[in-house]
């Protein structure tokens, strides 16, 4: 009787183990895919947020300008 219980529990836990392993592997693959996506998004961000692009956009589209020294006020504690 004990032998039968032991045999079936071995079967059950092996099954459980295999299911968990496959679940882990699926998550790892997902991680790799997300990493690839992240790298591509980084590239996109970098090309969109290039300093000179931002500066020319700020000047042309938003009519922004650098403050000159007279409009700067320095506060010291």
């Amino acid at each position: 009787m004990m032998v039968v219980i032991s045999a079936f529990s071995v079967i059950y836990f092996t099954h459980l183990n295999r299911q968990t392993t496959s679940g882990l592997e699926i998550l790892l693959t997902e991680r790799d895919e997300l990493d690839i996506e992240w790298r591509n998004l980084l590239l996109e961000q970098n090309s969109l947020a290039e300093h000179s692009t931002i500066e020319s956009k700020a000047r042309k589209l938003l009519q922004m300008k650098r403050p000159n020294i007279n409009s700067e006020v320095i506060i010291q504690q």
Binding site: I36, R39, N40, L42, L43, N46
Partner: peptide
Amino acid sequence: RELAISVP
């Protein structure tokens, strides 16, 4: 900021 990055 990334200056060089590898993408698969």
